[in-house]
């Protein structure tokens, strides 16, 4: 891999109470590339991605060993604030979760909480974020209607726009298409391909074809361990590990 490394996991162990969910994970995430994380349910892939912006802290009774670096700096370091990390590392969730507010308020929310007061600037950023999320043409006449009126796929793109407005450096997608129909899924995938020009992207998916279609690198997780990581093409055509091959060829999962 000849790219700049944006994020890096070093010897990461993670526990829910006494149960170990991640075992000694070492993984590099390259700048402005799409990294896909695949594996059967319960393999720890969602747990891992939620470590990357410290969302795991919302769950009580968890503990972490090892380091996760963002631009070489440990995001769990003593002086580091989770809030600051989440501003730099945005996240899109499995189920679209727009706020019960208007479309405009949804996108401007992140700007407000990050202290942007200039109304002109906010408006400009809302529009550009919606454009980048390929939602602008759908909704430009109803910016002030409730976000809950949108379709599932539109809601998910709104959630992406909401993330983009804060101008993060890394975008995390936790099975973003899990609750969407194939057409909406296709649109989200196109969008991700477009976004990787500007952002570092990590996507968790249970859909291997999706991983094959959109990612540059793929990591295969099994039972809390990173089994194999490499160029997506290599992983899907010539996996080194027997277990990766079994999973990709559908022998279990």
């Amino acid at each position: 891999m000849h790219n700049n490394i944006k994020m890096k996991a070093e010897n990461v162990d993670f526990f829910y109470g006494p149960r170990q969910a991640l075992k000694d994970i070492n993984l590099d995430i390259c700048e402005k590339r799409v990294t896909a994380i695949i594996g059967p349910s319960g393999c720890g892939k969602s747990t891992f991605i939620r470590l990357l912006n410290r969302m795991n802290e919302l769950i009580p009774n968890t503990s972490l060993k090892g380091r996760i670096l963002l631009d070489g700096e440990d995001i769990f370091g003593q002086q580091v604030d989770a809030v600051g990390i989440r501003r730099r590392v945005g996240m899109v969730f499995q189920k679209p979760n727009p706020f019960p507010k208007s479309i405009f308020e949804n996108v401007s929310y992140g700007l407000h909480v990050n202290g942007v007061k200039d109304k002109k600037l906010i408006e400009k950023k809302v529009v550009s974020s919606l454009e980048k999320a390929a939602l602008w043409d759908d909704i430009k006449d109803r910016l002030h209607e409730s976000a809950l009126k949108l379709s599932g796929g539109q809601q998910q793109r709104l959630c992406i726009a909401r993330c983009l407005a804060v101008e993060p450096e890394v975008l995390l997608f936790d099975e973003p298409c899990a609750s969407l129909d194939p057409i909406s899924t296709g649109k989200i995938e196109e969008l991700i391909m477009e976004l990787k020009k500007y952002y570092t992207i990590v996507i968790v998916t249970h859909n291997m074809q999706q991983a094959a279609r959109i990612s540059d690198h793929t990591a295969f997780f099994l039972l809390g361990e990173l089994i194999e990581m490499g160029k997506t093409q290599d992983i899907f055509t010539a996996p080194k590990d027997k277990r990766t091959e079994d999973y990709i060829t559908g022998r279990f999962g």
Partner: peptide
């Protein structure tokens, strides 16, 4: 979660 992930406190 959505709010916190956007960097809200």
């Amino acid at each position: 979660e959505a709010s916190l992930a956007l960097g809200a406190t």
